[in-house]
Simulated scan of single mutants.
Amino acid sequence: MMPAKLSVAIRHQFPGFTLDAAFDAPAGLTALFGQSGSGKTTIVNAVAGLMRPQQGRIEADGLILSDSRSGRFLPPHRRGVGYVFQEARLFPHLTVRQNLLYGRWFSGRDGADLSRIVDLLGIGHLLKRRPAALSGGERQRVAIGRAILSNPRFLLMDEPLAALDDSRKAEILPYLERLRDEAGLPILYVSHSAPEVARLATTIVLIGDGRVVAAGPAARILSDPATAPALGVAEAGAILPARVEALEPDGLMRLTCAAGPVWLSAQEGLVPGTSLRLRILARDVMLARHRPEQVSALNILPVTVRDMAPDGDSGMLVRLDAGAEALLARITRRSVQGLDLQPGQPVFAVLKAVSVAPGSVGKGSVS
């Protein structure tokens, strides 16, 4: 039975750096997000058993992996961890099929069904090839499959896309989404790419200088003005769950989200009934006191001002209630004064651009 939660609370002193982090990673994909050197990989290595924290406790759904008080420390091979590194680290002399089955053989347990994982990762046509004949994205998919087939309690992924170019990242992202939604494995995922995290994460743990800056559901963390400095103001925004309702005759598709309908250019693979995420950057949201008339923008949502926070010398981040979800707008202080914005005030959010992250990525701006 797969664990529902991974709990981490550790402290370790390095020369010139102290790691002191505590968080819970529930089912789904929990992203450890932060700049290089913030301690993300060290945390993952502690969970994997590759380093022993001086203090603290790590527990996976009742199984104690590490506890400094009792002295318990399970070695890596007894933790049931599937670890995917930046590089695939496949055996070059084995075929894809043999690499996949190695994980099951090494664990000594029957893991996930091979055919199911092959289908999940779209690698059925690669089974007879050797790693040298694969692209970078294909090698990473095989590495993920090998990790899953070792029947792990949870999956650790340390920046698995960092070594790939943009086209290879675009190739593998849909498979990571399927893995998140269908594999039934809790995933701890290290990244310093805000777009990647916004697309994949169900939970976000922001790490800065060895400490947890913020942690919680991805939608809340991404739309919180207080986390914008850690995320990078340019990447601050929100994610809204949405559903494709109809494909229009003029080439647009109509989606529904908590705040109302959204129109985007139709994209291959998106049919009525498809669930997806809309990513809306704060810089792509304009505000109006009254619903704009005779403008080119189609996506205008009624929202309510929740709160505001300063953004540098001249800017403000305005958090908005959009139905049961939240939006974030980045505007100037002068605009706040001109609109006389106050918490609780109804306004309209004009969306200049919306990114779509279903099983395949797309980006559209309808105006």
Rank of each mutant, 00 (worst) to 15 (best):
K5N: 04
L222H: 00
R146G: 12
T30E: 05
R333N: 12
G34M: 14
V350T: 11
S66Q: 11
A4Y: 06
S314H: 10
K169I: 10
T203G: 13
M51P: 09
F17Q: 06
P229T: 09
Q345I: 05
P261M: 04
G145A: 06
D224K: 00
L155A: 07
I187T: 14
V347C: 01
A31N: 06
L222M: 04
D24N: 12
L298A: 12
I204E: 08
V295D: 09
G103V: 12
D20F: 10
R104F: 07
Q267D: 09
V347D: 00
G312F: 05
V305Q: 02
R178D: 01
S314N: 10
S365Y: 09
G137V: 01
V354P: 01
H12Y: 12
D209Y: 07
I239K: 07
F348T: 00
L94E: 03
S68K: 02
I10H: 05
I187K: 06
A297P: 06
A194T: 05
M253S: 15
A288S: 15
E196W: 05
I123C: 03
A349V: 01
Y102G: 10
D158F: 13
D321V: 02
A143N: 12
L339Q: 08
K128A: 13
L29F: 09
L90Q: 01
E159Y: 08
A246M: 14
R11N: 04
M51W: 13
E268S: 12
T42K: 05
V84E: 01
S68G: 12
A234C: 05
F91Y: 11
M286Y: 11
R129M: 09
R180T: 11
G364P: 03
R330I: 01
V44I: 15
D119E: 14
G145Y: 03
Q337Y: 09
L255E: 00
V213D: 13
R52D: 10
G34L: 12
D61P: 07
D20C: 12
G359I: 09
A183N: 07
F154L: 15
H290D: 10
R146S: 12
D209F: 08
L114Q: 15
A133C: 11
G80T: 04
P53A: 07
A194L: 02
A25L: 12
V305A: 02
A236F: 00
R129T: 05
A21D: 14
P186W: 03
H192Y: 13
L240I: 13
C257M: 00
E293W: 11
D307T: 03
R243A: 02
F17P: 13
A246S: 15
D20V: 03
A329T: 00
S7D: 03
